[in-house]
Design a protein around this nucleic acid. Structure first.
Lengths: 236, 236
DNA sequence: GAGCGGATGGCAGCTTGCTGCCATTTCACC
DNA sequence: GGTGAAATGGCAGCAAGCTGCCATCCGCTC
């Protein structure tokens, strides 16, 4: 890599990434952090073990930070690998909101940004300008802080209501009485209440207030619905 | 600016920003977007009017996007200026979560990142590498999407419960009955219910579920409390 | 068609939530 | 101390929420 920090280096394909950025990735001493949608990004084919081993040799106490989207847990094999990573000492977090940018950060002095796949080739840009690296780190940190630890994520994997449950959520979010909601949905009051009870169990809530907290926290209610409230607080 | 897109350009101070990046900012044809904590960043002293006028001349229909943190509304003068900006056609949004990076985006081909103030001088880095610009744009878009339109933000300025109200929120979040909560707070049931009713009015909610949604949405409940639920859904 | 399991709906009984009313207490001000 | 406004607490009456029980219906399988 050139000595000019303000010149970004564009790498084409995984092979070039390994060859030219491999040493950079292996040389991390204080910080190694990556963000990826799934395990395919930053797979570093053919060189991964080497780079990881080298990094461990140089910085034995360094704990890598790995930020993934829920897609990384889409299949059991990927999930097993993530658990393994965490078991080996990496800090693994799941970011519920979509990751806007797949990134690697090294020691606060370099960032690697993954571009999209075009004609089967993916480009990666190595950036070392201090302000740009600082900016990318700030954005990474924001995502990291809002992410959930892998273990906690797996333990509290968001419950997913079925179609019926989602309809009930809509009625609850609208602030209707059970009777009005049941009429709206074309079911009896008893049935509606059964569904509310099932939803409460699903959300692990003891009260409707608590259920509302949980539903919003888990993003189970469309943004418009949760924003619809009366015109505002009265001035008291 | 050099013809080499992969060379980032570091500008020292506002004056250099105006002189060397001014033409870039004035030349925006399809996109002009900025993110700032408050109105001081990107003030472009002495040249603002000119740059804005030039941009209007070249791209009469271009609507600038301006993303600010709630700090931008901290005083009435700033608020007035923001309203004026919006009245003149800019899209102004308020991002409730802290802005990790103050940025300007021009036409999807350039980004300007603001560094911190050091020894009274602030540096700005102009970036044109396509992948980096793309990455910064993605991050900007994420923040933009989660931000609230200025008018909506002002209309729905988050209500702030007083100390009593926050205590009531804690009890509600814990899922207690009113009787148990009142006992806990050392007030009568009637008084507790009065406070719950006041909180519901403040939140503009018709039901406790709706109040829970709103409270969580507005970030009025500490993260630990809202995360505390029973061990999980039973497997049915 | 018969049988079975699950879902639905009506009803009853109970608990919890909501609010008006009134007496009393508290607090701030003169 | 006196006064007035606001807050508190007890009570009653009512609405809303919760769940068990049982009869009936529905969908699926043989």
């Amino acid at each position: 890599m050139t000595a000019d920090l303000d010149r970004n280096v564009v790498l084409r394909g995984e092979r070039e990434l390994v060859e030219r950025a491999g040493p950079l990735l292996a040389a991390a001493r204080e910080e190694f952090a990556c963000a990826a949608a799934d395990l395919r990004t930053w797979a570093l084919p053919g060189a991964r073990e080497e780079i990881v081993a080298e990094r461990h040799r140089r910085a034995p106490g360094l704990r890598a930070r790995k930020l993934y989207s829920p897609l990384a847990l889409a299949d059991e094999e990927s999930e097993r690998l993530l658990v393994e990573l965490a078991d080996r000492g990496a800090q693994v977090r799941i970011c519920r909101t979509p990751l806007p940018q797949e990134t690697i950060l090294v020691d606060g002095r370099a960032a690697v940004l993954a571009g999209p796949v075009e004609r089967g080739v993916r480009t990666f840009t190595v950036v070392r300008s201090p302000d740009v690296v600082r900016g990318v780190r700030a954005l990474y940190r924001a995502a990291w802080e809002s992410a959930v630890d892998l273990a906690a994520y797996r333990r509290a994997r968001p419950p997913m209501p079925d179609e019926e449950g989602r309809r009930v959520l809509g009625m609850l979010a609208a602030g209707l009485t059970d009777e009005a909601a049941a009429r709206r949905l074309g079911v009896s009051l008893r049935t509606y209440r059964r569904r509310v009870a099932a939803l409460m169990t699903l959300l692990g809530a003891d009260s409707r207030f608590q259920a509302g907290l949980r539903a919003q926290q888990l993003g189970l209610v469309p943004a418009q619905t949760s924003a619809s409230h009366r015109s505002g607080p009265k001035t008291s």
